[in-house]
Amino acid sequence: MGMNTLTAPLPLSLRLDAQVARRPAPGHLSVMSSPSRPSRMPTPDELSAWIRAVADPGDRAAFAALFRHFAPRIKAFLMRGGADAALAEELAQEAMVNVWRKAASFDPARAQASTWVFTIARNLRIDYARRGLDGAREQSAGDAADELTDELADAAPTPPEQLAAGQIEHGVREALGKLPEDQALLLRLSFYEEQPHADIAKALSIPLGTVKSRIRRAMEQLRRALGHLQP
């Protein structure tokens, strides 16, 4: 299959209209046709509870709920990063397989559900970029075994710096909401795009040379909104 080819990035106009945060589209996955379920954003606590239910007792309904929330977002994230639809579909499924496999090592005190799933999707994107599709699959199978040993090794009490995962994610969400739209856009593009600096220069029609200082300012603004003192 010619799936490990990355397409040229989408025209910018197409990508930019997809950048505004919205509630999930009402369309459900065919497999989870539970019409009674409202299509609202699940809360972080719900997401955490679903991941724990997947870990034990291997709850497939909880996994379906996670799949409905995260799989289309992971697919979108990978497409924004330059993958074509078929590859993004393939890797999104692989990411969800990893969510299942690693559910037992999920620790909400360390990272909230969305953060945890983000790192899974990001790591898969890294592995794919370095080693191709088979390499990424192999790597994620190995990682799952690693996570298990890590978990055994980490039985020690959590250090204080790790106590506030919920507060961090909540704070970041609020802080991001307070940023002017152009600064929030800079941060979004930094995470999503394959060539963030070049893409940002194009999207905002600014010279490449000023992109870095603009991102830096957006990051300072975010940290200020988070309550850090930064000059």
Binding site: A18, Q19, V20, A21, R22, P24, A25, G27, L29, M41, F70, A71, P72, R73, I74, K75, A76, F77, M79, R80, A85, A88, E89, A92, Q93, A111, Q112, A113, S114, T115, W116, V117, F118, T119, A121, R122, A165, I168, E169, V172, R173, L176, L187, R188, F191, Y192, L222
Partner: peptide
Amino acid sequence: ALGGVLLDQIEPVEL
């Protein structure tokens, strides 16, 4: 965590 928030906020693409 910002990555997690941005993942939540991305416009989903159905599978």
